[in-house]
Each structure stands twice: as structure tokens, then as C-alpha cells.
Nucleic acid binder design. Sequence first.
DNA 1: GTTTAAACTTGATATAGATCAATCTTAGTA
DNA 2: TACTAAGATTGATCTATATCAAGTTTAAAC
Lengths: 266, 266
Amino acid sequence: MTTGKKLANNVVYQQALGQHHTIACENCSMNAICQPVEADGQTLDLSKNYLNKKIPVNAQAPDTSQRHTQVKNRILFEENTPLTSIYAVCSGVFKLCVTSKDGYEKVVGLRYPGELIGEDALFLENYNYSAIAIGQSSVCEVSIEQFSSCGKLVPELQQNLIALLSKQSYVRQSNFQSFIGKKSADSLLAAFLINITKRNEAYTGSSSKLNLLVSRNDVANFLGLRRETLSRVFAKFQKEGLIKIEGKIIHLLQKELLCDLANFHS
Amino acid sequence: MTTGKKLANNVVYQQALGQHHTIACENCSMNAICQPVEADGQTLDLSKNYLNKKIPVNAQAPDTSQRHTQVKNRILFEENTPLTSIYAVCSGVFKLCVTSKDGYEKVVGLRYPGELIGEDALFLENYNYSAIAIGQSSVCEVSIEQFSSCGKLVPELQQNLIALLSKQSYVRQSNFQSFIGKKSADSLLAAFLINITKRNEAYTGSSSKLNLLVSRNDVANFLGLRRETLSRVFAKFQKEGLIKIEGKIIHLLQKELLCDLANFHS
DNA sequence: GTTTAAACTTGATATAGATCAATCTTAGTA
DNA sequence: TACTAAGATTGATCTATATCAAGTTTAAAC
């Protein structure tokens, strides 16, 4: 891991935030169905049967673990292609996109370590968005077919999946509530920063700083703002002492005020 | 059902759209866990054990069915109160609200017949929003406690719940995708009309007209627009021949154009 | 049928954010 | 270290939507 002059801080923070390391399994949403379960008084680790590894793509440092798939700036899967697996992000970040008829790519979600990708299409034929790795990222892959055959044998596994799905449903609803009907750029960005920090809290160990990893362009696209507007709001927040910006790393200096802004209803 | 002079059309359409009738079970999201299941070669209708009825509240025409709870302009449950049941809307519509510190009530969702309420908090202590009946509405109630005890006995029931939750997760994600990052009032309203029509399609039997049931105020609140702005966009859409307005009933005359507007990315 | 309140619409003005354009910064490469 | 391209910021102007205000329609109550 080289340290350029200007980059030094960045790397330090990335290490501090653990963004280039894989998430601990106990902090991962997938954990509910990966954990060994008790069946007939025996302990079974069914994950061995359905958790796949994939060939690393464009990996700078080849992944040595068995579980994690390395992808860099690569498409994990494309919209409207057959659904075969669901994924949990292990490291890095993935953007979820849909492409409109005119070819415009709209960012409809971001997934950070420990979060699921594709589980919302579990009983559909096809994926409902494309998933694209930002920078160097990795995932765990769960084959639906293999999981199903395991699930039939172990009822407890199914209960765990129920809990996982319900939790996801909650996460999605919370997400929706955070952003629906927000009109001002200020409250949108505040809601976004609070939302992402919270989602990464268990993983990064910090409730006041986050590494966005994605470009300003992607954030602006996701929020429905112009990159110029987003830039201005970022600058304003920093000038007002609400945040401190170090490239893609954001320190939330006055979280209370940001929360007020995020909840502000106009 | 009386027919006033000006009201006649309205009532006719409401009947045509079936808004004052309860949804057929086969069109309801809850159906996956209400249907009788096969267990040990026997058919069990477990719904009898966990599907409750509730005392009608403010009902104009008392409900004679066993399953459906009648509530009118009433709170079904309040934010941050203990979660005991999940619900499926049988008739009418419910608005989901969160109240901010300053007392402002934000509409974070609308639930039409066949849709679930509260399932996203299934494994939480408390409900994460309040649910309020608009006009005369009714629900089916599933007691969590009773469902759980049934579920343990019948694995198939659990599989059905998995399917239900995954589908809900998909619905939520689709919802999110429809509204996140939409900036213009035009595309917001277009997305809203398409979204609600689609959600009600199986129930109303129509893919080109819908009965909003909720006030313009609630719609504007949900979309993050001012009622004046919403009113102007409604008027513009009608003037342009995209829709026809009959009070709360909206006819989608040019669905293709509305879809284009809804997908429009600026 | 008349009265009253609530819901909805329309008009005029002010403002937040888009747009267009230029500049600056960062990261990757020679 | 210098060069290059992509990403990010800043400035000036224009436009869509909020805001304030008045008026109209609808629905409920008397």
C-alpha cells in the first residue's frame, strides 16, 4: 500500500475505516443464513454448500480468501439478466443502476459492506438493476439453487432467512422514508450523510466519519441533484462547520444539526 | 348507497373500481400465509389461528364479515408503540406517517387494498410509523405471536412467508427507484400516478384509471411538493390531455407519455 | 335549502437549484 | 518530475417551484 504525499491522510483514514478490508461476518446482513445451525443435535455449516467464490476480476491484490470475490470497476450483474445468486458486499462499495430508454444511467442505490444485493428479486426471473463495483470491491455469493436445497432440509435456516428478509424490508422502508419528499438540497445531503454513516457504523466503528468511496457525480445522480449543486452544498456545510471534507472522507462534526436538517420537512 | 346529483359519477366509478368493497383474497399480498397449506397429507387452514378480527371503529356500515376490521379516519397503530400484528389492507387506503420533533406530520407511504402494513418491523420492538385509515377502510390482522407458533409447526408456511417478504422487499425497492432522485414536479406526479395505478391494477381491474382516495394535501406531502404546485401540475396534465380528473378519480389517457415523463431523468 | 368549513385552484412574486462556462484539483501515466 | 485526463469547484444567469394571497368549489352541518 503506497503512500503518496497528498494521499497519506486518505490511506490512513481508509485503513482506519477499514474500507479496504473485508467486513467481519458478524456484522454482515447475510450472516443470518451463513451461520452454522443446529440440526438434529448436530452443528451444520451449510454455507459451505451454497456460498461460492468467483474468479477475481481486475484485482490489484489477488484475493487469497476462499469466500470473497474480487471485482474492480466491474459489472457484478446486469439489469434484466437471469437471477442466479444474491450477494453480500464484503469490501468496497457497489452502485445499483437502471438505464432508461434514452441511455441515461440512474443510480438507484449504493451498497456498503455487510449489505445485500439482489435479494429483492429473489423470486423474480431477472435482476431489477445492474450492480457495478466501485474501485476494488468484493462480495460473497449465495447460489439460490443451492441455498434452496439446503433450506428444505433445515427449517431453522428458513427462519433465519425470514428474519433477514424482514430486516431488509425494514432497511428499505427506512431508506425510503429518509429520502421521499425531501426537497431542499441541504436536507437531501444531510439525510444522505446520516443514512450512510449509520449503515456503515457497525463496520467502520465510527458514528461520525465515513468514506463515501463513490464519486460526487454518483452521489449527485443518486440524490437527483446536479454535481455543481452538490458541490456547493458540501462547501456550505463545511464552511458552516457541520462537516469536514477530506476528499471522499467526510467527518460529521455537528451530527445533531445535520439530523435536524435531514428531518426538516420543507 | 345514495346517489347525490354531483356525486353520481363518483359513486359509479367507486363501484366500478371496487374501492368500497373488500379485495379478493387471491389478490392480497397476505394470501401467501393465509392460504390453507398441506401438512402430513392433511389440509390445514392455519389462518383461523392467527387471523384476528377487530371491533369496528366509526364504521358507517358495520362490517358483517368475520375477517375484516373496519376503521374510519382512525389510527390503526401509532409510531413507536409495541408491534403485535401485521396487517393487510382489505378496502380503502391507509396513510403511513412519521411525526418530526416540530410536530410536522410527514406521509411516508400509502397502502392500498392487498398491500401490507407493518411487516417491515416484524422483528423490531415497535412500529416505525403510524398507520391512519382514510375514509372508510378495513384490514385483516395477523397476530405475530399466534403466527409464530403456527409457523413452527408447518415449514411450508415459513416458505410462504419468505416469498411474501422477498416480494415486499422488491416492491419497496421498486417504489424507492420510482421516486429517488426525481426532481421535477412533472416527473414526480407522473411516477406517482403510474405507481399507484400499477399497484391497484389487480384489485381494480383497470390499468388506466385509479381512485386516489387520499386528499391532494396528502399526495403533495408524500411527494414533497406544495399543494399549489401539485394542483398546477394536475391541471397542466389535464390540459395537455395526459389525464382526465374527476375529483379523486384519475383517468390515465396517455400512459406512454406519462411513463416517459416518469422515467425522465432530469 | 342555507350556512359553514374544508379542500382545492389560480395568480403574482421571490428564491433555490439548474444550466452554461471557466477554472482548479487529483490521480494516473510517461 | 512533467503531462494528461478525469473529477471537482466556483461564478453568472435563467427557470421551476415555493410562498403569499385571494378566490372557487366541494362537502358536511344545520
